[in-house]
Amino acid sequence: MLAISGLNQFYGESHTLWDLDVEIPQGQCTCVMGRNGVGKTTLMQCIMGLLPLRSGSLSYQGQDLARLTAERRAPLGIGYVPQGRQIFPLLTVEENLRIGLAARPDRAKQVPGYIFELFPVLKEMLGRRGGDLSGGQQQQLAIGRALVIDPKLLILDEPTEGIQPNIVHEIGDIIRRLMTDLNLTVILVEQKLPFARRVADRFIILDRGRLMASGAMPDLTEDLVKQYLTV
């Protein structure tokens, strides 16, 4: 579904991503892993068009994304839940959700009902300001907002960060349900290893901006964990 080839990125004079070649298969959850500061979020921002590629190619369902702005990528079916959620705290839950409607190709005017089936708490709190929600509720709102655009590819950057354990488990269940029921493809950036093993089908490990290992999740050995993931 998504093919990345020879991707390089810089932050100022610092070379942050080095010649990345990555394939994201359709209908699976691929977990991007690595210690803090290795380039995981930078890679997600490149995919979304929030950072320009210094070099390399980025193809989504056979279409070249490299020259498309972030605003033009979302209507192609790419949903993004950024690290830290980044909801609009002064807008209501309903207003946060409705923001995604503009990116839908069908120009639907109503938030899809299945989002409230996935996250009943959002329906209960439609009139409440986003900033008044708990961290877990804000994360559910951020995921719901990304789903409003009817994505085929969903990018989740650290969705369990700062979330209570019961909501973490629920988010894992919802990711698997989205893949089963809607055939969504998911890119998950995650540091919680038990969560990653439970939710993801495949893994990619980055270290200092380079791809060090990839494969099916059962192939994530303790040696790899010790070498690239433990602090």
Rank of each mutant, 00 (worst) to 15 (best):
R107P: 06
E71A: 15
V189Q: 00
L156N: 00
A146G: 10
S134H: 11
I99R: 03
H169L: 15
I187Q: 03
D173N: 14
N183W: 03
R145N: 03
L154H: 06
R198C: 03
G172Q: 11
I175H: 04
T180W: 09
P159E: 01
L76G: 14
R177V: 00
A196M: 09
P105A: 07
P112T: 10
Y114K: 05
A70G: 07
R197I: 10
Q191L: 04
Q140K: 14
F116A: 12
K109F: 06
R128S: 03
L97M: 07
L91G: 06
G113K: 14
G130Y: 01
V148M: 08
V148I: 09
D150R: 15
L133R: 00
V148S: 11
P120C: 08
E117K: 05
R176P: 00
D106I: 01
G144I: 02
V111S: 13
G172C: 07
R73Q: 11
I155M: 02
L156W: 01
Y114F: 14
L153Y: 06
L147T: 10
P120G: 07
R98P: 07
L133D: 09
G77T: 12
P165I: 08
G131A: 13
Q191P: 07
L182I: 04
E117W: 00
A146Q: 04
I174K: 10
R104V: 01
M179W: 13
E95P: 04
L122C: 11
I99L: 15
R98N: 09
A70V: 13
K109H: 12
R85Y: 02
G79R: 07
I155K: 00
